[in-house]
Design a protein around this nucleic acid. Structure first.
Lengths: 232, 232
DNA sequence: CGTAAAATTGACGCTAATCAAGGTCCGTGG
DNA sequence: CCACGGACCTTGATTAGCGTCAATTTTACG
């Protein structure tokens, strides 16, 4: 049974459950299990058998890959309402990446076969999943194109803008990216190294475009970043 | 009505229709329309409203994107059995890329809403779609990681190996990549330019790893390419 | 046979990765 | 509360990798 922590408001805005009735929510959710994951712990690791999929209800999650050579790549970050391992688990693949909780996370998890059964019974569930995957797919494609065609400066600028869209929080001076964000992670998102990122952020800070503290970046002039990202 | 050209054999191996019965195939296919697309023509263009989705039955299709700056990126190639615009159309997005027929193509196309209705009626259809998307997603993620962490030489080597897996055809000397493949296209797949690709292919040809004619590449020593792709 | 597209090769210059050295911030335990 | 260690960040110098331009050759196709 799903605890009271999961109120109807947070469920209503979850894309997986759209166009389904609250009574159907109950049926679907009771097929899953509640999971709590502590900061620093993992939902799953790259390379494991994928037999479990989740919907994140609270907390932030970081998705990373490691290459054979040991290089890390940050695939992205998740917010409440996002899905974890949905396509992967349904395709019987190994998890292609690791999902780490950046703070205390609350999620609902289903066994692969249970979710398949649910989807066969509530086809709208599968349609919603397709839509969720579609958005993620589009974003990955955009980032792929960035990596293929743009220079480091533009890629980092655009990565910051994406993070603003996802985690932006209005503050007095501008928009704060409300996750702990190291130079290293930004580099791993944009296919470069921490040195380049550090240089860029330092320069932008001198120019008054951004403002940065330890692991925190605030965008002061988003329009400037847009221009930098477009390459002119 | 779907013509006889579409025999049961080619349908049986189409992932979209797996775990469905031949009578269900008929119902699903009769909700769609047959399309023929001539070489050089397009299923759809980047930026158009996506209200149509397809399953490719015969022919090869090239997926490309253009950036604002005018750079082309090759997202990939499709074979018979692959889907076109499935996620995109179901997510009510604009087509994020263009799909060009490289030869005479035969496909079944559905209107977005018709396919949604079919999926609600035959949930297995939606599950199969999710699985198809999953594979494509994993491949894109792999290529993203390549772009983020590997040097040009490795990326091109690995792109060739992927193409071998997809379009490889055993010939006397080795494995032919059985699509017209220009240096330019190979460059657009790997985030570099035709000059680098030309140099690499020339060198590999001197070393006896590959053999190339106009727009055709044959891999003679795949294991060598694997080593090059791993970076040692 | 002529034209346009595709491919080759060399030279040059810039971008970005790498290495090194030192500074800053943070949580932990004495 | 302060000292310490580890993670995070900065900045400069160096160099390798890569993109770009230019000139030429090869190939396909009408």
């Amino acid at each position: 049974m799903i605890p009271d922590v999961i109120d109807n408001d947070s469920l209503a805005q979850c894309m997986l459950l759209r166009k389904l009735s609250p009574t159907e929510w109950q049926a679907i959710l009771s097929g899953g299990r509640e999971h709590r994951v502590l900061p620093g712990e993992y939902f799953f690791h790259q390379g494991e058998e994928s037999n479990q999929l989740y919907i994140l209800l609270a907390g932030q999650v970081k998705l990373t890959q490691v290459t054979e050579a040991g290089n890390q790549v940050v695939i992205g970050y998740l917010r409440p309402g996002d899905g974890l391992g949905i396509v992967v688990a349904l395709s019987n693949m190994l998890y292609p990446l690791s999902a780490e909780a950046m703070e205390l996370c609350l999620a609902v998890g289903w066994a692969r076969d249970d979710m398949k059964a649910l989807m066969l019974h509530y086809p709208q569930l599968a349609l919603n999943s397709l839509e969720m995957v579609g958005e993620r797919f589009a974003e990955l494609q955009e980032r792929f194109r960035d990596l293929a065609t743009r220079r480091v400066e533009q890629r980092v600028a655009r990565a910051l803008l994406r993070l603003v869209r996802q985690f932006g929080k209005r503050v007095a001076e501008g928009v704060l990216i409300d996750i702990p964000l190291s130079r290293q992670s930004l580099a791993e998102m944009t296919g470069t190294n921490l040195y380049q990122v550090s240089r860029l952020v330092s320069r932008w800070e001198k120019e008054g475009v951004v403002q940065s503290e330890h692991q925190r970046i605030t965008i002061l002039k988003a329009h400037e970043l847009v221009i930098l990202g477009e390459d002119l």
